[in-house]
């Protein structure tokens, strides 16, 4: 498994007066979750899109992104967004197998078998032939998680994937995601301090000066229970963030 290194990275949108961020350094250790916490509009999504190769090259991009195994990053990442992005015209099974469909044009029986297995791991058995509009929000995001797992990439980029869910579904999906993605190199972006503290192996706060500030984490293993220690961490983190608002 490979770690990921971002050195002196900066991003300046073509029509913007100032860069989104500049001189940014970040190390994503292999097989662990790195979380970035930040207010909306701070540029954390831009960083994720940069890694995913989704920033149009007409914008000014600098810096270096490298993997420790020397292989290129593109085509080895899976991307999970706040919206589930399930295609409404495909069945659940076809949505899960979307990568095979889009990269090779067909879905093999083995791939379908694996997709069924993944769905049953996520407690989604029996809905393979349903369409996304027949599912609840929590189920849809679990199908999106299955689709991400099905891509079998070493790197997973997640952009507030659970923020549109209600509290109970969010809690459930955090547990599930931490469980099934524990052997991947994950970059997880959120604006929710509690979510970040539950899931992170490394946690950074993207502050108003566009710098990544490391944050002390509770000692327990992820996914962490919301206990006294996590509560105390959350309290001090909120105070630290609060000092920069207004």
């Amino acid at each position: 498994m490979s770690s990921l290194e971002i050195r002196q990275s900066s991003l300046h949108y073509q029509d913007a007066s100032s860069p989104v961020f500049s001189g940014l350094n970040l190390h994503l250790p292999a097989n662990s979750w790195t979380c970035i916490l930040g207010a909306s509009g701070c540029g954390k999504t831009s960083l994720l899109r940069l890694l995913a190769g989704l920033i149009d090259p007409q914008h000014q991009i600098e810096g270096e992104i490298s993997c420790s195994d020397g292989l290129p990053l593109s085509s080895r990442i899976a991307y999970m967004a706040q919206q589930d992005l399930l295609l409404p015209w495909l069945s659940v099974l076809d949505n899960v197998c979307l990568k095979a469909k889009l990269s090779t044009g067909k879905i093999t029986a083995t791939q379908q078998e694996r997709a069924r297995l993944l769905l049953s791991q996520l407690n989604l058995s029996g809905i393979e032939n349903d369409f996304p509009n027949q599912l609840s929000g929590g189920m849809r995001q679990r199908v999106a998680l299955a689709r991400t797992l099905m891509q079998e990439t070493p790197f997973v980029l997640m952009d507030e994937p659970f923020s549109a869910l209600d509290a109970v579904n969010r809690y459930k999906l955090q547990e599930l995601a931490a469980e099934v993605l524990k052997n991947r190199t994950v970059l997880f972006i959120t604006h929710d301090p509690q979510e970040a503290l539950r899931l992170a192996n490394q946690l950074y706060w993207f502050d108003n000066n566009k710098k990544l500030v490391p944050i002390q984490l509770p000692s327990s293993n992820t996914p962490r229970a919301i206990d006294a220690e996590l509560g105390a961490c959350q309290q001090s983190l909120l105070q630290q963030m609060h000092s920069q608002y207004d």
């Binding site: 995913a52 190769g53 899976a78 991307y79 992005l85 979307l98 889009l102 891509q151």
Partner: peptide, 9 residues
């Protein structure tokens, strides 16, 4: 949708 398709190659 297009972002997703692009990351899937």
């Amino acid at each position: 949708y297009l972002d997703l398709a692009q990351t899937m190659g």
